[in-house]
Design a protein around this nucleic acid. Structure first.
Lengths: 179, 179
DNA sequence: TTGCTCATGTAATGCGTTACATGATTCT
DNA sequence: AGAATCATGTAACGCATTACATGAGCAA
């Protein structure tokens, strides 16, 4: 009975503190948005499954219209085992824009250049946005250290890509001038 | 009637030259593997759909047990429109390993350090593997320029991540020494 | 003749999103 | 009173993988 990565994401969020489904979505949307998303259509059914598996449980005496979940000892064990699992997992920067770029020999040089510029702009924007979130988190020392580290990775990651695409733009532009 | 990114990937591969389904899979697995994958379960039904939509067609007089597809003028038009489409598409480095790292405050400092080391090793390996493919491609001048560029991006991308995780390892290690 | 690569496909299943539907609570 | 936010959920659909099934062509 394997769990999805999203199930472990939920388990991880509840390992920090008890939370409602809504609350979990909020924290993921803010702090984990550069590497993961959750939708309610995934979240609420998953919470029920985890509860049925005995890995989480509803806190008694919570507000009526709201279910606050907490992790059980079994859940904590499952989470730790998952984090420590040495199985190799492939990475993949799955990005439709990269597909466009990859086959952009098919379009003209002007469109190709424009595409490279748009990509650079996209990553600059994302970098700046994440840098903002990062500063907010830095002000709140209660946030786990690794949240800050992974967010910092996000900022530097998009900075790297922004610069790379700027470099590509220059290379494409140069070839244009030459002819 | 919107097409999936994978449909456009196929269209892009056929814009370069006519190819069989098997052939498309081969080129994607080698040259595009760091940002996209295709399975036969997706590929063959998609080829039929594209053909029904008039965006590709089977070459007549091909070998019996083999269908060689080529792009139609309508297909080329659709591909160009897709590449030039200015709609914003969000990026997301969706990676289960990053979920582990994000919540690794829940496991001990030793396991956390080990995780960072494994991540660094994973990206070093991927960088070296892609560098190999890159050298092969460099030897073949018939390959489109953008294939080489995107592959080069892959190499530098994984190099960046390898270094970042090495830095993280050092930071975590340091904190360990201190206490 | 054994095995490898080329070649094409289907069925079941899993993961995830989108759109929809509903209602309580809190702030202005 | 009205708006925003908090809060929970379902149904339909889309994308993609996995496992399975089949068979031709070719080289050792």
């Amino acid at each position: 009975m394997g769990l999805s990565d999203t199930a472990y994401l939920i388990l991880g969020a509840l390992a920090e503190r008890p939370r409602s489904g809504y609350d979990i979505k909020r924290v993921v949307d803010v702090a984990a948005r550069h590497f993961w998303t959750v939708s309610y259509g995934q979240l609420y059914p998953e919470l029920r499954r985890l509860s049925e598996a005995g890995l989480i449980e509803a806190e008694p005496g919570g507000p009526r219209h709201r279910t606050v979940w907490r992790i059980t000892p079994a859940g904590r064990e499952a989470l730790e085992a998952w984090v420590n699992d040495p199985t190799e997992h492939p990475v993949e920067l799955r990005d439709g824009m990269l597909v466009r770029l990859f086959f952009s020999d098919a379009v003209g040089p002007t469109a190709r250049l424009e595409l490279a510029r748009r990509l650079a702009a996209r990553h600059r924007a994302k970098r700046d946005q994440l840098a903002g979130v990062c500063q907010q988190l830095a002000a709140d020392p209660s946030r786990p250290r690794m949240h800050r580290e992974v967010l910092r990775l996000g900022v530097e990651f998009h900075d790297f890509l922004a610069r790379w695409y700027e470099g590509l733009t220059a290379r494409l532009d140069e070839k244009e001038e030459t002819r």
